[in-house]
Structure formats: structure tokens, C-alpha cells
Write a protein that binds this DNA or RNA. Structure first.
Lengths: 126, 126
DNA sequence: GAAATATACAACCAAATGGTTGTATATTCA
DNA sequence: TGAATATACAACCATTTGGTTGTATATTTC
């Protein structure tokens, strides 16, 4: 489906909407950290932190690589840039790669929310 | 990090993490819309859309003004800018990491005695 | 004044979220 | 080899979320 783009936006912003996850992001953007190391930084169980890391990974905000028994996580700056572009797109500012996203959103918001989405590419049919 | 600041970030990203709310935002950034008009655009109850508008309003992403019996909503660019800055902060941390890596690579040939500091404003390579 | 319209909000419900503990499976180390 | 470590994941639980319907209150409009 073409709503994949909206699914991705949902996942991105949802992942960012938690302070623990944002803090994890700051750490993994500064450098690689194992899940254990990250878990040690918070007052919650290892499993809880592991779930936060999984949410971030599913949103594409971090990548994991394996080194022996540990999983090293590092931030993916491309996903952050995607989020930034989505914000610009909301304001109605279209530039760079956003033009490509536009075509997708144009259709997907019409499908997802019925009755045509709020695209700024005037298709006026009010 | 003040908790109020994190609360605000939570609210901002949470509000953005729903496709209906993002679609509402696109509309109210394009121009003022009454809650009724917005509600008419989606396949859900008026109350549901009203709640979405309330979430966006609490996050500061839109403002409402009263005109007679209707409430006109319009987007607040400042809130979107706040969200953008939060994302830029992450990118900035990432740039710092890249800067440190480059500094280390430089050092490996120079065999300098001095260890690099945490924050380097290095050239970005996009 | 009565009816229609626009908003607000409470109460309710199913599903998702953020946490927990427990178990299983690799991998490293003594 | 056996113990400790690192990860993964299932099952469970309380709270939040996104939707519903119903009711109340202004404001237009007829």
C-alpha cells in the first residue's frame, strides 16, 4: 500500500515521543553503545530498555550490529532527516526530496483518511 | 534537562505521531478551519476529531480563536520549529561524533599528545 | 421563540503502550 | 567444562490512547 509512508511517519514520531528513547538516541548518535551499557543508564529493567531500543530500531532511528555476544547500537541520521522533512512538509514547505514524498502523501492521505488529504497542491474540490 | 522541556517534547512528538492529526495540521497550516469543517473531512465522529484538535492544541501545534459559535483553528509554526530544533540537536550530536572520528584519524598519523575534546564543530559532509 | 448548528465534555470500551518477571540461547571467561 | 554475561522474547499488568455515544450550552437562523 501507499500508506507505507504514513506508517513510517507514525513510527518515527511515536518513537521520538518518549523521553527515555530520546535520551537513548542522544547516546547512540554520540557513538556506539551496547544495549547493556544503555540499560545501565536508566532506572528500569534491561528488558524495558531493550524494548525501547527495538522501537527505535523499527522506526529506523538506530541500527544494531553484532559484536560477539553484544549488540552495538548507533544512530541513523537519515531517519532524523526524514522526520525533519516531514515537519517542513506539514508547514507546506516543499523542497529537496520532499517533492517525492508529496506524491505519496497526496494519495495516501486520501486513502487513509478518506475524502482526500490536506495537500497543498491545490486540487481544490471543496 | 528540565522536566517541563521533556514534557513538551513528549507532547509535541506524540501529537505528530498520528496520521489524522498530521492531516489536520496540513489543513490548518494552509489556512483557518473550523472544527466542524475539519470533522467533515474524516470518517469518524465529530467528537473524535475534536479530541485530535485538542491534542494538537495542548501540544501548541495549533491555536483556536472564536468566531461566533465556531472555533477556528490555525497552525502554529513556532511549535513545529521547536520540534525541528529537537531533531537538529540529535543531528548536531551526530556531527560531533563524526568530528571526533575525523580528529582521531588525523591524530593517528600526527602522533599528537593531546586528546580531542568532546565537541568539535567540524565540517559536515552531506 | 423554536429549531438547527457548533462546540465542549463526560462516560465508556477495545487496543496499544510502557513497564514488569521469567525463560531460553549464545558467547565469553576462569 | 561450568559460570557469568548479553541478548531476545513471551506472558502479564496498569495506564493511556483513540474511538464511540450521550448530554449540555452557546449562537444563528427561521
Amino acid at each position: 500500500m501507499l500508506q507505507a509512508s504514513e506508517d513510517r511517519a507514525d513510527a518515527l514520531f511515536h518513537a521520538l515521543a518518549d523521553r527515555t528513547r530520546r535520551d537513548i538516541l542522544r547516546r547512540v548518535f554520540a557513538g556506539e553503545h551496547s544495549v547493556s551499557t544503555l540499560a545501565g543508564a536508566y532506572d528500569m529493567s534491561f528488558a524495558a530498555v531493550q524494548k525501547h531500543v527495538a522501537v527505535l530500531e523499527r522506526a529506523g532511528l538506530l541500527n544494531k550490529r553484532r559484536r560477539g555476544r553484544e549488540a552495538l547500537a548507533s544512530g541513523d541520521v537519515e531517519a532524523v532527516r526524514s522526520a525533519s522533512e516531514l515537519l517542513l512538509e506539514l508547514e507546506g514547505i516543499w523542497r529537496g526530496r520532499i517533492g517525492r514524498i508529496e506524491a505519496l502523501l497526496d494519495q495516501s492521505s486520501a486513502d487513509d483518511t478518506r475524502r482526500g488529504g490536506a495537500t497543498h497542491t491545490e486540487k481544490s474540490k471543496d
